[in-house]
Structures are given as structure tokens and as C-alpha cells.
């Protein structure tokens, strides 16, 4: 969907716009049916001849209004308590890689980080995070295969306190939002972390793959229903997916995109910039 809005300019050149076609192409851009309808009715209400550029203008304005201008930064607690980040999402979206990227970013800002390998299920998931922990020189807490992921996070908290780390990053196993038992397991992690510090986990970040279509909104709905999300990481924006779905997620659930992933290396990671997203990516 590279330059998705620009493609609209080329397609809708004639002043007599096929409204159904426009609505369908907005949906095809992963902006979701609700927003697509709003954009179309807004355009229809304008009593003048419209061109492709007008469409893009109106669409961009709508998206701008939905996305917050800035999002909160990740700052450590002043009292020295570790800030706990729980990284969740469906299978293969980029949770483990994003956990490493976040750790790198925080270390770069001068903070001490502890990693918890709470995916005790998938083959070599622990080893994967372990490789990152070695490369980043960040301590890692792990448990035996198929052990309780909540216990790993609990131990991670203790390790963070002991080593005086400002952040604990918990990488969890991939789970489809339709799997009841796995969603319950995640709620348990959430509960158990709360025993150490009632406000923990302080950030619950859902990782979403930019290649995902309409299902991403459904994923966000279900995860948000299970545990309150505080932000999104949209990954694989170096591919052809442009992450249009983060707009309906913000619109419906008010969960802001915090970071974006742009490759497989730790540096391929940025804080989300809504202005750039609207002006360039979309």
C-alpha cells in the first residue's frame, strides 16, 4: 500500500466519482469500513466538483483528526521501581524482535533493562531472546520449557529490583486472540505481575504486523478486552504493508501507536510520528 493515498489521485481523475468504488478502495487500504464511510459522506456533502487531490485531502484530514499529535514517552519511575512492559500479540508478528529493539532503545537512552523470556512454549523462543540478550548485554530471566510464563515474569521483576534496572521487558508467546486458554494465561501473567506492584504491568504493548489486513482490528479488540492495552508497535513497515489499520484501531479503541518496526535489526525501530505517517507513508 505504498503511497496509498497517491494511488487514489491517479484512480479518481474524473470529477464524477464512483462512490462505491471509492469506498471500496478506502477499505482496501486497511482504513476500515467505518472511516471509509465517513470520508465518503464528507466528500459527498461538498457541493462542488471533486478531483483526486480533494479526496486525498479529505482522507488525510480525517486521519489527522483521529491520530494524536504526540504520544507519551517511555520514562523510568523517579522512585527507582522498575517499569514493567508486557509485550503481547498473535503468532509471528515480531514480539521477540520488538522486545530486543525496545531494550536497545532504552539502553541507548541510558537505562538499565532486564529481559524476561516468558514464551516458554515455542521451540527455541527462549534461545532467540537469549541471543538478543547477549548481543545487547542485558540480563535475561528464563524458565524451563513449558513452565509457567507468569512465574518467569515474577522472577524477572525480582531480578530487575535486585540489579537496579529501570525497565523490565516481558516477551510473551504468540497467541491467537480466539484461543480462550491462551488469553487466560496472559491475564494470569498480568495478575501475577500486579502482586509485586499493583500498578504493574505499566505498559501493555500489542505488536501488530503491518502486512495484516482487517483481522488486525479484531486482534486489538480482543487483546484490549482481555488486558488494557497502552500502545501498539506496528512492525514490518519496511515491507509493502503501510499499516493503515493503526488508524481504525486508534479510532475505535483509543490505543495509540507508540513505535514502528522497519527491519530485522535492533536499530530498525522508531518512535511513531503521526505527521510523517500521514504525509509520507499513507
Amino acid at each position: 500500500m505504498a503511497g496509498f493515498f497517491k494511488s487514489l489521485i491517479q484512480r479518481f481523475t474524473k470529477p464524477d466519482i464512483d462512490w462505491d468504488d471509492l469506498e471500496a478502495s478506502l477499505i482496501a487500504g486497511d482504513l476500515g469500513p467505518k472511516l471509509a464511510l465517513q470520508i465518503v459522506s464528507d466528500l459527498q456533502a461538498q457541493q462542488r466538483k471533486l478531483h483526486g487531490a480533494d479526496i486525498v485531502q479529505v482522507a488525510r484530514d480525517h486521519v489527522r483528526k483521529i491520530l494524536p499529535e504526540s504520544v507519551p514517552h517511555l520514562t523510568p519511575f523517579a522512585d527507582g521501581r522498575p517499569k514493567v512492559l508486557l509485550i503481547v500479540g498473535v503468532n509471528g508478528v515480531g514480539k521477540t524482535t520488538s522486545t530486543a529493539k525496545l531494550a536497545h532503545l532504552l539502553q541507548h537512552a541510558g537505562h538499565k533493562v532486564v529481559l524476561a523470556a516468558a514464551d516458554t512454549f515455542r521451540a527455541a523462543a527462549v534461545e532467540q531472546l537469549q541471543v538478543w540478550s547477549q548481543r545487547l548485554d542485558a540480563p535475561l530471566v528464563k524458565g524451563p520449557p513449558n513452565s509457567d510464563p507468569a512465574a518467569v515474569c515474577f522472577e524477572g521483576y525480582e531480578m530487575a529490583v535486585k540489579t537496579g534496572a529501570s525497565f523490565l521487558l516481558c516477551d510473551t508467546a504468540g497467541r491467537l486472540h480466539t484461543k480462550h486458554n491462551l488469553m487466560e494465561e496472559m491475564k494470569k501473567i498480568h495478575r501475577v505481575l500486579g502482586r509485586k506492584d499493583p500498578t504493574s504491568p505499566h505498559e501493555i504493548i500489542l505488536v501488530v504486523d503491518a502486512t495484516t489486513g482487517s483481522n488486525a482490528l479484531q486482534q486489538a479488540r480482543e487483546f484490549h478486552k482481555a488486558i488494557p492495552l497502552t500502545g501498539l508497535i506496528v512492525t514490518k513497515l519496511d515491507g509493502s504493508g503501510k499499516g493503515g489499520v493503526l488508524v481504525p484501531i486508534q479510532q475505535e479503541l483509543k490505543v495509540p501507536t507508540r513505535f514502528i518496526g522497519l527491519g530485522e535489526k535492533v536499530e530498525d525501530f522508531q518512535a511513531f510520528d503521526s505527521k510523517r505517517f500521514v504525509d509520507e507513508l499513507l
Binding site: 500500500m1 482496501a28 487500504g29 486497511d30 498473535v90 509471528g92 504486523d209 502486512t211 495484516t212 489486513g213 482487517s214 483481522n215 488486525a216 486482534q219 515491507g239 509493502s240 504493508g241 489499520v245
Partner: peptide
């Protein structure tokens, strides 16, 4: 390919 792939499927 992932079942949740969106409109990029053709290009991919």
C-alpha cells in the same frame, strides 16, 4: 502465507 494477510497478498 499467514491467513491474516491483507491487501499486499497480490504483490507478495
Amino acid at each position: 502465507a499467514d491467513a491474516a494477510t491483507g491487501q499486499q497478498a497480490v504483490a507478495v
